[in-house]
Design a protein around this nucleic acid. Structure first.
Lengths: 343, 343
DNA sequence: ACAGGCTTTCAAAGCGCTTTGGTGGATTGA
DNA sequence: TCAATCCACCAAAGCGCTTTGAAAGCCTGT
């Protein structure tokens, strides 16, 4: 069922039917209702492509999700992020286009998306230091929102939604220091990523403030897998002077730490303290009642929702000033932290 | 840059340029090259929407991923599935449209997608018993591939890619029985799902073959979260006669089981045996060397890839007979299983 | 009764592409 | 030499929609 057929059926012109359905004023209430009823009855839904061609608006947004080529890994936070964003898209009747791209040629992917003209805007995932995509999109003139930030020159004005990574890790580190810990391991994400850089800065700054020298051999930076948590903990604990506490950049890394501990017969919160960053992944609810991990928590799902909102806003009105949303993480006290054991 | 501009630039008609780019024979090699070069230089990429309108082919496929309304949860296996499928889509130059839909009105979502006409085919995720979507899509005439199966009447001929869930769980259960276990807990996924039904059937059949009566209180069925594994294990172990082995439907559930064990000071593989099903999630590589979990393994990423292949095939040639791919899971022996402790 | 102003409707152009149905000119065969 | 054939190209229609510009019908007020 298309417009032509529907209007023939109603003995009206395509113009009138189209306007009736799109809420234009120059249509009498009587015919508007008649049209609406017929459309519903015949299950008429306008063809998106044609609509897009005619209006120049696609009613779709793109997400390019990077595939870590080194480990052939897709970060599981995307599911929750996307679930959040989808809520908004569903509301606004937008489609979501997904492209999974090896992180080696993301730029080409964005360029392609832009020239294909199949989306009205994009969400930029996983920004790195001085991320070239920001300049690219800006020069192309495609609306975008960054999930995270990039330390590109200050004059770059772009919309972003980020968690206060620095503050979160600063607080977590300080919390451990206050408990008496001096040797604190950091299992960070890949430090090419902006978020990881900020987290490290937070960690650093808390140590500096307490006058503790940082031991570079206690800081690791890797793709945030379970195995990474496990292997690192095993390596740490094999040292003469193992750390008494660990800061893990994701719950998944934390799970690896836990596995190592149980293998080494170390009790978390007693022999070794652990703070994780908790993205609020739906399959890993870090229980509120028996709050298992001490954690800095910030919902990635909420971030997805907010990103989508900002993007919709920008598409609707490109001249509106770019908004920035900085979410603060809560510090949740669980059972994996405790006073530093006496050495 | 669009066709019109490009052809004006080359002093050729749109027809010729279009044909040159699409590899039609009625164009001289010389002009074909000239056109190709110009297209590359000016970064010309045909507008997908216009192309779609003209051809009736959208060069896009849809994935509808169900959001469990009960727990507001999106299954993390989707990231890996989608990473696999994307490989094919990238190859074939297809777009992927994602819709996240509350599992309560999935049918409406499919109907809408179909009438919007924005995709050439869809992948059906998470089939349930007698899944209505299969009939729906068949009657609409939209090409589709099911990830999993549904026990709809036999005459329904549709393409699917599934893991041999029954066989996998039958083997796992038998493996435990052979180790002397008699009380085996089952932490299954939601038994409205087809895969969970088959897994249970496999479990059942192995017990029956060994002449062991099934204890319904040892069988649980829930959304496969970490918490579910934890809570269930705690509950199991609080019984007078706890199970000596557990079968968990995903690695995430298994992680919960492990957490409970470490809390209860039980050693996996000695005090309690555990077999998980391992989808090969990239963030949870179940290490080969120090294979941590005994597991039935089947790569969901590979499944995604195969689904995409079948779908491409079907879109290209709708009359080709529907293909079925049944993947066998490997049984990987890890360190979480051992002989049943003497009671 | 009629100019002027609304309201409601319509025909047709255009979005960027593919495809049908040509056409003009070079090549071939008799 | 002329018709037949083929090659390389083109103009225009059409995909399903929106939107511009115009027109028909209906009130007003004088």
């Amino acid at each position: 069922m298309n417009l032509k057929e529907l209007s023939a059926l109603l003995n009206l012109s395509q113009t009138t039917v189209s306007r009736a359905l799109n809420g234009y004023p120059e249509v009498s209430e009587a015919t508007r209702e008649r049209v609406g009823k017929a459309a519903r009855e015949h299950n008429y839904i306008p063809n998106t492509r044609a609509q897009g061609l005619a209006t120049g608006r696609t009613h779709a947004v793109g997400h390019v999700i990077p595939l870590s080529t080194k480990h052939e890994v897709v970060n599981p936070v995307f599911t929750d992020f996307i679930a959040g964003a989808s809520e908004i898209y569903a509301q606004e009747n937008y489609d979501m286009h997904l492209t999974v791209v090896p992180d080696t040629n993301e730029e080409a992917a964005y360029r392609k998306i832009a020239s294909k003209g199949s989306v009205d805007g994009v969400i930029v995932h996983g920004p790195v230091e001085n991320d070239p995509r920001i300049n690219l999109l800006q020069s192309i003139g495609m609306p975008f929102v960054v999930h995270g930030r990039s330390n590109t020159e200050v004059d770059q004005d772009y919309a972003w939604v980020d968690m206060n990574n620095k503050r979160a890790f600063e607080r977590a580190t300080k919390f451990l220091i206050d408990l008496g810990h001096r040797r604190i391991g950091l299992l960070n994400g890949l430090e090419s990523m902006d978020f990881a850089i900020r987290r490290r800065a937070g960690y650093q700054s808390a140590l500096d403030a307490a006058g503790i020298a940082t031991d570079p051999s206690l800081c690791r930076s890797e793709e945030m897998t379970e195995d990474y948590g496990y292997e690192s903990t095993m390596a740490f604990c094999a040292r003469d002077t193992p750390p008494t506490a660990i800061l893990a950049s994701s719950i998944i890394v934390g799970i690896g730490v836990r596995r190592a501990c149980s293998e080494l017969n170390l009790t978390l919160g007693k022999d070794l303290s652990l703070i994780i960053h908790d993205d609020g992944l739906s399959y890993f609810r870090n229980g509120a009642a028996a709050s298992q991990y001490t954690a800095t928590r910030s919902s990635v799902r909420q971030a997805g929702l907010t990103c989508a909102e900002l993007l919709m806003e920008q598409i609707a009105n490109p001249d509106v000033p770019k908004r920035h949303v900085l979410m603060e993480a809560e510090l949740i006290i669980g059972s994996t932290t405790g006073p530093a054991p006496r050495s």
